[in-house]
Computed example of a mutant assay.
Amino acid sequence: MPKSDTPKLDDIDKKILRVLSDDGKISNKDLAEKVGLSPSPCWQRVQRLEKEGVITGYRTLLNQEMLGAPDVVFVVLTLERHSGTSPEEMIDKLALLPEILEIYLTSGSSDYLLKVAVDGTQGFEEFIRRKLHEVEGVSQSRSSFSLQCFKQIENFLPE
């Protein structure tokens, strides 16, 4: 959303967004209580924030370790310049790989940054050999395993 179209958020809106960022399953009654509103006006504000596109959805966070893919690898991809694959086609192909959690178009010498969930080095090797390097247009990749995550949030709400 361009800056000129950015909705004006008052302190109550920001409180609502902070509470929902921490607990998207909170009841409207409990949300209203936490932000100092009665339930009806609170619900109307949430509906407005959704309609304006400030709230884009609600998610469930999964424990990757319990699902068998505890390791996070960051992969920097460089594409072949003359592969005939458009950026849109590349994104579509990468998005089909379920191990890829996030895809970013980047500036600089690389084209994409991927966040990938795998089960150790063997799982990563299989992902690279059997999936990622089979995607037409990938020239090279560099990877780094995450050793430990110290901060993980989904949103940033400017003051």
Rank of each mutant, 00 (worst) to 15 (best):
G108C: 09
V76F: 15
D111K: 01
Q64E: 03
W43C: 03
L79D: 03
I128M: 08
A95M: 07
L79Q: 06
I55Q: 05
L67H: 07
D13T: 10
V73A: 05
S4W: 02
D111Q: 02
V54T: 07
K29S: 11
E99G: 01
P98T: 08
I103C: 01
V54E: 06
S144P: 00
K151S: 07
N155A: 11
G137K: 01
T121H: 11
K51D: 14
L132W: 00
D71K: 06
E50M: 10
L97F: 02
K115M: 15
N28L: 12
V75Y: 01
F156D: 14
K29T: 14
V138G: 00
K14D: 08
G24F: 02
Q47L: 10
Q148C: 02
L105T: 15
K14M: 09
P158E: 09
L61S: 15
Q140F: 00
L20E: 03
T121S: 04
I16L: 03
L132G: 09
P87Y: 10
V19R: 01
E134F: 06
V72T: 14
P158D: 05
I26E: 12
D5G: 00
L96S: 05
Q148Y: 13
P39C: 06
L49V: 06
L157S: 12
V75L: 06
Y104A: 00
E126W: 00
D119C: 03
P7K: 05
E134Y: 05
R130S: 08
S109G: 02
M1N: 02
L96E: 15
T78N: 07
F124E: 04
V138C: 03
E89I: 04
P2Y: 12
I100K: 07
L132P: 04
L113T: 09
N28K: 04
K25F: 01
I91V: 12
F156I: 15
H82A: 07
H82L: 06
L101Y: 15
G68I: 09
V54C: 04
S141D: 08
S141Y: 13
I153M: 06
S139R: 03
S27T: 15
N155L: 05
T56Y: 13
L67Q: 13
V116T: 05
L132M: 08
D111G: 10
S146C: 14
G123L: 05
S38Y: 10
L62P: 02
L94F: 10
S141C: 04
S38G: 12
K8E: 13
A69L: 10
E65S: 15
L147R: 02
Q47G: 02
E102D: 12
F150Q: 11
K93R: 12
Q47V: 11
V116A: 04
E65V: 11
L157R: 07
V73S: 00
A69N: 08
E126R: 14
G108K: 12
E99T: 02
K25P: 00
T78C: 00
